[in-house]
Structures are given as structure tokens and as C-alpha cells.
Simulated scan of single mutants.
Amino acid sequence: MTVTVRKTPITAALQGRRRPLEPAFRVVLLASLAIAVVFLGILLAYVVSEGWGRLDSRLWTNFPSKLYPERAGAQSAIVGTVYIIGLTGAFCVPIGVMTAIYLEEYASREHWWNRLIELNIQNLAAVPSIVYGILGLGVLARGLDLGRTLITAALTLSLLVLPVVIIAAREAIRAVPGSIRQGSLALGATQWQTIWRQVLPAAVPGIATGTILALSRAIGEAAPLLLLGAVTHITFNPESVTDAYTVLPIQIFNWIKQPEAEFHTLASAAIVILLAILLLMNSVAIWLRNRYEKRG
């Protein structure tokens, strides 16, 4: 039996109007993508060409110098950046994932406090980073007497990116099919066993992607760290979480302010190092995502 759908004049007019607009919309999308890629390529080419002369071992083996740009390096800034990103990930990822598990698997939508938590998480994701810097300075550095140290910076950046981690982890957990949960529970597993052995492994690709986006934002932040004592001239590597520190964005900013052209070359080379660290982080996230997708 064949069912024939009768087209009204309005339906035919709408379909006829969509057909010429769809190719035009695709062209606009491709043009926007091409413009973004071209500008990004120009920026990368400019930075690499400007800093190529100082992309050598001096950059990561020497410490900063205010008087001798030919001897200056960014070892303390590179080490400080790696420490801060490592501590930030260690703080925010477990808390963010556990919060997402609670909100998606345990929390009841009928309770007002759960709705309040969700509303605050969504609002905190849009708060400017300088506000978190003021919060870290007032509460962590002065209120808890942690000082302007490495641990204070890591905790502040963890608060900054925590809403992003929570939102990404919630979306990844929500995307896991309900049949997986039902099948696990039907076989006698507890709710926690279902979450730990079934839901989380299936959600790891989405969680890894969201986490790396959050840490990518943290690695480029300079405004909160200016308030938290990320001084620009550090000639030693931090040995504990209570030491002074500096990071690559602050060091780059300091070199750009100098009038000598050699320092500008150093800044371009440091930007390349920062991009390399960011690409390495993204590569690890892609590897984790592909590994767990194959297992699934």
C-alpha cells in the first residue's frame, strides 16, 4: 500500500525556498572556516618565523635575564607552567567528574538545592577570570594564609576551570545509553559498580575532551596569576608548592614590554614553546579518547 502525501502550496513554496538557501549556507560556513584557518596559519607562521632564531636549547636550559637577552631563557617559566597545569588537573578533574556523577546519577531534580547547584555551575562558567584572581587573593592567599605561592595559583585556576570540567563531564555521562545501565543493574551490579565499570569507561572520551579544553584555557591565563604573585623575573625552579613561581604567559608579557628586539624574538620563541605544550596536552587527550572508543 502506497501512501501519497499531498503537498499544499505553502509546503511546496517552503521546500522550493530551502533548496537554493542550503548551498548558500554551506558556502558561508566553509568561507568562515577558511578565514579562521587562514588567520591562524598566518599567526603561527609569523610567530615561528620571528622566534626561529632562538628556538634552541638556551630557551629551555637558561633562566631569564634582564641584561643579556642572548643568554636569557625561560626554564623557570616552563617548569612553573608544567607544575601549575599538573596541579590544576589533579585538583579539578577528580572533583569535577565526581560532581558530574552526583548530578547525573544520584541527584534528584525535585530538590531545590540540586537545581541551585546546577544554576550556580552554569553561571560560574561565565565569570571573568580576573574575578577568580581576586577571590584567590582574598580567600586563599590572605584568608587561608597560603601566600602568593604555587599552590594558591593552582587552586585558583582549578576554581576557574572547574565549571567547564563539570559541564563537559555531565554531557559525556548523559550521552551514555541508558540500556548499558539497565543491563548492568539487571545482572546484579550495584549502582556504583555500574557507574565505575560501565558508565565512566564509556564517558571517558567526552570527559577527556572537556578536560583538555578546560586545561587549555588555564594554561593561557595571565590575569589571575598577576594578582597571585606570578612575578616576571624568577631565576630558579620551584621545588615545593609553597615556592614563588612564574609561568610562560607572564614571561612572554614581560619580554614583549622590553624595548630591545632580541627580547621580542625571545617572546615569539616562548609562544612556540607554549603552543608545543598545548599540542602535547591535546595529543594525550586524543590518544585517550581513541583508546577508549576502540574498547567501546
Results as ranks from 00 to 15, higher is better:
W60S: 10
G96E: 13
D145E: 14
G86A: 08
G96D: 10
R115T: 13
V82W: 01
L146H: 06
F91Y: 10
L150D: 04
Y102R: 10
N120M: 15
G147E: 01
A74N: 08
F63M: 14
I101N: 04
L67W: 15
I151F: 12
E104I: 04
I95M: 15
S129A: 03
G138L: 13
G96I: 12
T99W: 11
Y132V: 00
I134L: 11
G147I: 01
G138R: 11
T61I: 09
A141V: 03
R71H: 13
R115N: 15
V97H: 10
V131H: 11
L137P: 06
G147D: 01
A74M: 14
D56I: 04
I84W: 00
G89F: 01
L137W: 06
A154R: 00
L140R: 02
T152R: 01
G96Y: 08
T152Q: 03
S76D: 07
C92F: 05
L119A: 12
L140V: 05
E118K: 14
L150I: 07
S65E: 13
A125H: 05
H111N: 07
L67P: 08
A90D: 09
R142Y: 04
A154W: 01
Y83W: 13
D145C: 09
N62V: 11
L150V: 09
L87V: 02
V82D: 02
N62I: 09
Y83P: 00
T149E: 10
W60Y: 15
M98S: 13
G136S: 02
G80P: 01
I151Y: 10
G73Y: 09
H111Y: 07
N120G: 12
N114I: 05
F63I: 05
T156Y: 02
G147R: 01
I95E: 13
S108A: 14
I84G: 02
L135S: 10
I78W: 04
D56G: 09
A100L: 09
V93Q: 04
V79S: 06
G147P: 00
W112F: 14
I101G: 07
I117C: 11
V139R: 05
G53W: 07
P64G: 04
A90I: 12
W60G: 08
T88R: 00
S129T: 07
S76G: 03
M98I: 12
E105M: 10
Q75V: 08
L140W: 03
A141D: 01
E105Q: 09
W113V: 09
G136N: 02
V127K: 05
R109T: 12
N123G: 15
I78Q: 09
M98R: 13
L124F: 10
S65V: 07
L103N: 05
L135V: 14
L140M: 05
R54D: 11
E104D: 03
L87D: 02
N114V: 06
Q75K: 13
Y102T: 08
A90V: 11
S129N: 06
D56P: 03
T61N: 14
P64D: 04
I85D: 03
E110T: 11
I84K: 00
L116H: 03
T149W: 05
A74D: 08
W113I: 11
F91N: 09
